[in-house]
Simulated assay, not measured.
Amino acid sequence: MKRSRLLLSLAFAVLSTLVLLGVWLDRQRSAPAPAIRANCAELQRGCRIVLPDATVTLRTDRAPSALHPFRLEVTGLSSPATVRFGMAGMEMGPIAFPLSAENGRAALTATLPLCVQGRRDWLLWLDRPEGRIEVAFVAQG
């Protein structure tokens, strides 16, 4: 009787360990790579970001500001990507734009919404299959 309880307890411990190990391994595989962060004081002058697999350049035709459209040009892309805009700690809605690179270049026209709190500190996320680039910039008032 004691031997069967011991075997049952041992089997339960081994099974529990295997389940926990499987959950941990799954989380390690699905965890996104950390974003490469860059600051871009003036997007209209352009920002060059050197990565292990490419050099990506971001440039706008004018200083981004709320409610005024601007054109964003991205060079150095080797595959389709998505551009998203947002603010740290503040949900700004799903502002996302797909990019299709032709000869490593892509462009889009975007408009930032007005932040009711008066903040101008924006983040641009460039999501590529190779990983995310996060660019901090300040919009014009």
Rank of each mutant, 00 (worst) to 15 (best):
E102G: 08
T75C: 05
S65F: 02
R27V: 08
T57W: 00
T82F: 00
H68N: 13
S65G: 04
L58I: 00
A139V: 02
V50C: 01
E42V: 10
R48D: 12
A101R: 04
Q117P: 02
P52Y: 04
P52M: 09
L114Q: 12
S9V: 09
K2R: 15
L99R: 03
D26Q: 13
A11N: 03
E102V: 15
E91P: 02
V56I: 14
L124S: 02
I95R: 00
L43R: 00
V116K: 05
H68V: 15
A11K: 03
P113T: 04
T75F: 03
A139K: 03
E73L: 11
A31C: 09
G118W: 03
A136I: 01
G118R: 05
G93N: 01
E130I: 11
L99A: 06
M87Y: 00
P34Q: 09
G141I: 10
R37D: 14
A35W: 01
S65I: 10
C47P: 00
V19G: 04
T60L: 07
L18Q: 04
G93W: 05
L6I: 15
L126I: 11
V50S: 10
G118T: 09
L58A: 02
L67Y: 05
T57I: 07
Q44S: 13
R120N: 12
R29M: 09
A31G: 11
L18I: 03
R62L: 10
M87W: 01
P98A: 03
D61A: 10
H68C: 12
H68W: 12
L6F: 15
V19W: 08
T109S: 06
N39A: 13
L108S: 00
A13R: 00
A96P: 00
L72C: 06
L77N: 07
P52D: 12
P34R: 07
A41T: 14
A35F: 05
S78Q: 14
R120E: 12
L25F: 04
S4A: 15
M1Q: 14
E42L: 14
R119F: 04
V116F: 09
L126V: 09
R128T: 15
S9Q: 07
R119S: 11
V14P: 00
P80C: 11
R105S: 07
L43Y: 02
A110C: 01
F70D: 06
F97L: 06
A63E: 13
E130Y: 05
R119I: 08
T111V: 13
A41R: 13
E102Q: 13
I133H: 02
F85H: 02
I49R: 03
I133Y: 01
Q140K: 12
L99M: 05
R37H: 14
A63D: 10
V135A: 03
C40Y: 01
S100M: 10
R45Y: 11
M87C: 07
V135S: 02
V50R: 09
K2V: 14
N39D: 15
S9E: 08
P64E: 06
